[in-house]
Computed example of a mutant assay.
Amino acid sequence: MHLTEFLAKKGAEYAPFDPSRAVRIFERFKEDFLPIFSPKVIHIVGTNGKGSTGRMIARGLKNVMHFTSPHLFTINERFYLNGVNIQMSVLEDTHQVLIQKPYMQEASYFEYLTFLCLFLSKECEYLVLEAGLGGEFDSTNVLKDKISVFTQIGLDHCEILGESLEQIATTKLNSMGKVAFLGIQRYTQILPIAQNIAKSKGSTLYTLSHTLLPPFAMPEFLLENLTLASKVLDFLGAGYELGEIAKIDLQGRMQKYSPHITLDVGHNPDGARAVAREFEGKKITLVYNAYKQKDIFEVLSILSPIIKEVQIIAVEDERIVQREELEKILKNLDIKYSNFEAIKENEETLVFGSFSVVREFLERV
């Protein structure tokens, strides 16, 4: 079975949770495929900013794999080796090796991709390994010898990770290795939780409170991520140019698609706050849709001061909120809305939402 078919049969990316499954598979996987695993692991955990922070770190290193998620169009976007995405044919060949072991059938969608990454990176000098939703029980946390990098932690995926910020932060921060970096945080509760966990684990924790001077004009949240990435690179003794690592090549991170069109895959309240700061004082057209489990009312409330009109882009996905529910929220917030049909020339437009929203926009435009 081809890789794409195999993954399609897995269903949802984040399968019913079993904290022991990845650990159990990893023990056998290690015996069969990783007798020697040489990379220095930089484990990226957080709610917002994992992808951009990880990519900035990877751009400052040599002989490095960056494993990130999710992808916009093709699965190989998640596997970035020395500046380019790994070819699909290489992923397919690796899959055909791993799948010979019956125990690999047990892995969930995301777990299987994690093991693909470990196999492909085993001879690299560095592995920048981005967690999925969680931390402590994430499949990427099977590796214990690592440097932990915590980006901004906030409320998201509450249906999986917990209803309170303290619960979510504890789950993520419990993945802490012996050396850890805590990026600039919006919520004051995060720091004491991190300090207590570091003390209990005997970890060395470096915390950030101020940003660097930017090498060029950039959004505040990306500058925070750049500051965090640079601190990690300094610790590793990497030689890098700040302006070069800041030029990330990931789509959808406040990406200027054209002079008047910005793409951002933020989909939670903290992501909305970051975007609202960048467009403060302006009125924009918002091309938008969202998954039904997201806090849509809160996101649109935060963005409302900058919105001239919402254009609802239809997305074929069972997780997308019902159109009637989205319209009800927009009416309650007194936000003008219409269907997305085409971009209006020379009009400031923000495409904001999940990866599926940005992907749908790019496929149409």
Rank of each mutant, 00 (worst) to 15 (best):
H2I: 09
L3N: 02
F6Y: 14
A12C: 14
Y14L: 12
P16L: 02
P19S: 08
P19C: 02
S20C: 12
R21D: 12
A22K: 06
V23H: 13
D32S: 13
V41R: 01
I44V: 09
T47A: 07
R59V: 11
G60N: 12
M65C: 14
H66C: 07
H71R: 03
F73R: 01
N76T: 03
L81M: 15
L81H: 13
L81Q: 08
N85F: 10
S89R: 12
I99Q: 09
P102K: 04
Y103D: 12
M104A: 05
T114K: 05
C124P: 14
L133E: 01
L133Q: 01
L133D: 00
D138T: 00
T140M: 01
I147V: 01
S148G: 07
V149C: 02
D156W: 12
E163N: 14
S164G: 14
L165T: 04
Q167W: 05
I168P: 07
N174W: 10
M176S: 10
G177K: 09
F181V: 00
T188D: 14
A194C: 06
N196D: 10
A198Y: 02
A198H: 04
G202Q: 04
Y206H: 15
T207D: 05
S209C: 08
L213V: 13
F216M: 06
M218E: 13
P219K: 08
L228R: 03
A238Y: 07
A238R: 13
I245T: 00
K247Y: 08
Q255R: 10
S258V: 07
G266Y: 10
N268P: 06
D270R: 05
R273D: 12
A274N: 12
L286R: 00
V287S: 03
Y288S: 03
K292G: 12
D295W: 03
E298P: 04
E298N: 10
I302G: 03
I302D: 10
L303C: 06
K308H: 15
E309D: 08
E309H: 09
I312H: 00
V315A: 02
E325R: 07
K331F: 11
N339H: 15
E341W: 04
